[in-house]
């Protein structure tokens, strides 16, 4: 079991999730965040923090999002760590509205 960031985070990146992660396992690129499954302890703290419902427990993933398990696992370890919230991407508010949140 692990916890994964999915599609909705793309171009959004509010990073509210990061503040409550007890073990610092979020990594980021220009687009979005990824969770390192080897570090994540599956505490679920980040899930309700995400304003666009981008984070899911592995066995709770909506249909068609399963590829994100691998994407998170592959990308996270090589990307820089993010431990404190940073500024949302400029288009984040618009993106949030577009996603219906």
């Amino acid at each position: 079991m692990t916890t994964v960031v999915t599609e909705n985070c793309k171009g959004c990146r509010f990073t509210d999730c990061v503040a409550v992660c007890p073990v610092a396992c979020f990594h980021y690129d220009d687009e979005m965040l990824y969770i390192d499954p080897d570090v994540c302890i599956d505490c679920s703290a980040c899930i309700p923090e995400c304003p666009v419902e981008a984070i899911f427990e592995e066995d709770d993933l909506p249909e068609g999002q399963e590829q994100w398990i691998e994407i998170n696992a592959e990308k996270a370890p090589d990307l820089p760590l993010i431990e404190e919230p940073m500024e949302a991407l400029p288009e984040a508010e618009q993106r949030k509205a577009d996603l219906g949140f």
């Binding site: 992660c21 007890p22 505490c43 703290a45 404190e84």
Partner: peptide, 11 residues
Amino acid sequence: GIIGTNRACAV
């Protein structure tokens, strides 16, 4: 609140 909640709180 769970373990991680205390991180944001302590910060």
